[in-house]
Amino acid sequence: MNAKRIGADALAAKGWLGTYKWLLLRRTSQLAILGLFLLGPLFGVWIVKGNLAYSYTLGVLPLTDPYVALQSLMTGHVPETLGLLGVAIVLVFYFLVGGRVYCSWVCPVNIVTDTAGWLRRRLGIKGSVHLARETRYWILGMTLAGSAVTGVVLWELINPVSMLHRGLIFGMGFAWTIVLAVFLFDLFVMSRGWCGRLCPVGAFYGLLGRVSPLRVSAAQRSACNDCMDCFEVCPEPQVIRPALKGMAKGGKAATGPLILASACTNCGRCIDVCAKDVFRFGTRFNNAIPVSEAGSDPAAAPGKF
């Protein structure tokens, strides 16, 4: 089993740091953000107040979760100036860097579900209840319509994301049971079930970043040796294929190397795990078919190694 460990090729080719660079950066980002929130309650250093629903940094920067704000808006309530300002700032930010950057770089549940996914692979747990990846958009719609009908910010009644984050900062109570449920669900019931199929927060941010400029690009896709490690490690593997396998074949027209699907979380694990350095971050304005593919046999295209 060790011989087939995902990323083994990358480890050999790029070393440990090269194989875990984006993962480390991501964990650093997640923990640093959580740490900033915790500095106040734990050490009395109030840089950031609040939680992911709304925070106020150094008394100048308001940040509001646009999904929570939208549900509140659906109930017919318009927030105060600071709340609205926070919505605007967050909308612009995620519109630029990719909506689901929230999922992979900020959300605390990502660590939980990533751990479940990792453990699932290590334990070799096969079999998964099938649920369409579109389910989350239905749930997203339901929470918005439901907020309008009930007059309550509906998803916040049970949202594991805010329960975990709020729990860590304001006191956990029994919120850990919900988080554990999400972990076990991902581990035993459904592979990548929570973030990939159910969570309407991720669905919302995905829609927000539909046309965001920052994207992962399979720029060196001609170097791909079909080891499948990127598919294994990707939380939304369906987004990779069009970009990676979009080269002109037979009569088919080529598609560009950019991963344009809004479900991509810009987590960068595919970049890490690829021994051939196929992927890198790029912008959506650079989706031209790479010159290396033009005309020649893809297998003969110059790779980095």
């Binding site: 106040g40 109030w46 107040k49 609040g50 939680n51 629903a53 709304y54 925070s55 106020y56 509001t64 979760d65 929570v68 704000a69 509140s72 109930t75 017919g76 309530h77 927030p79 709340g83 907020s147 007059g151 309550v152 910010v153 916040e156 805010s162 329960m163 709020r166 729990g167 900062i169 304001f170 006191g171 956990m172 109570g173 029994f174 919120a175 049971t177 919900i178």
Partner: peptide
């Protein structure tokens, strides 16, 4: 109206000088 307007951020809890307020836990 409160349950539609409150976004559960806890800023009121933080700015209460007497620790009077707390945010409801799931239980």
């Amino acid at each position: 109206d409160f349950l539609g307007a409150c976004i559960r951020c806890g800023l009121c809890v933080r700015d209460c000088p007497y620790d009077t307020l707390s945010l409801a836990k799931p239980e």
